[in-house]
């Protein structure tokens, strides 16, 4: 098959980009352990209220300025809805849903995950700047979806 010289050049650029992309994704996944925010734990979505740690949603101190934040989402609210975190705290966010698929996004941060019933999702984030952070549901979950939000107050240490 005859190919124009410039066609060969841009095919090479395209293939090179693809190889570069797969290499970066491969190293990030297999060598550095990056993965989607699902920690592969499952639970019965009808027994969320009696399953650890979701029977006591809220902030728990687990180390030196290190916290575990357990959130339960349901139509159309996040539990708990009044969260106060000290500045610079490393927070492991653990979340599940009691009913339908929700989203959990902390606006202005990299925390953005899908919350699926029957699954536990988790992400770790360090809150460097004090202030008010808005948590919103970013997966359409029903007629009250636009009201589903809460706030995190990051207080000065």
């Amino acid at each position: 098959m005859h190919l124009h010289r410039l066609e060969k050049v841009w095919l090479l650029i395209g293939i090179g980009t693809l190889v570069m992309f797969l290499t970066i994704v491969g190293i990030s996944a297999f060598a550095q352990g990056h993965h989607p925010p699902s920690d592969l734990t499952t639970l019965d979505p009808q027994k969320v209220d009696t399953t650890e740690p979701f029977n006591q949603p809220g902030l728990k101190k687990i180390g030196d300025n290190e916290y575990e934040l357990v959130i339960v989402s349901q139509a159309f609210a996040f539990m708990p809805n009044d969260i106060k975190i000290p500045e610079g705290a490393k927070v492991h966010i653990i979340v599940t849903s009691k009913d339908v698929v929700h989203g959990l996004e902390i606006v202005g941060t990299n925390v953005n995950m899908m919350v699926t019933p029957g699954h536990v999702n988790s992400l770790t984030h360090t809150f460097h700047k004090p202030g008010s952070y808005l948590i919103i549901c970013n997966e359409y979950c029903g007629t009250g979806h636009q009201m589903m939000s809460t706030k995190i107050e990051v207080t000065k240490a």
Binding site: L6, E7, V9, W10, I13, T17
Partner: peptide, 16 residues
Amino acid sequence: KEYSLFGTFLSVLMLA
């Protein structure tokens, strides 16, 4: 005849 693909190449590079 070989066509001139310089313009196309430039467009591809701009997209890249």
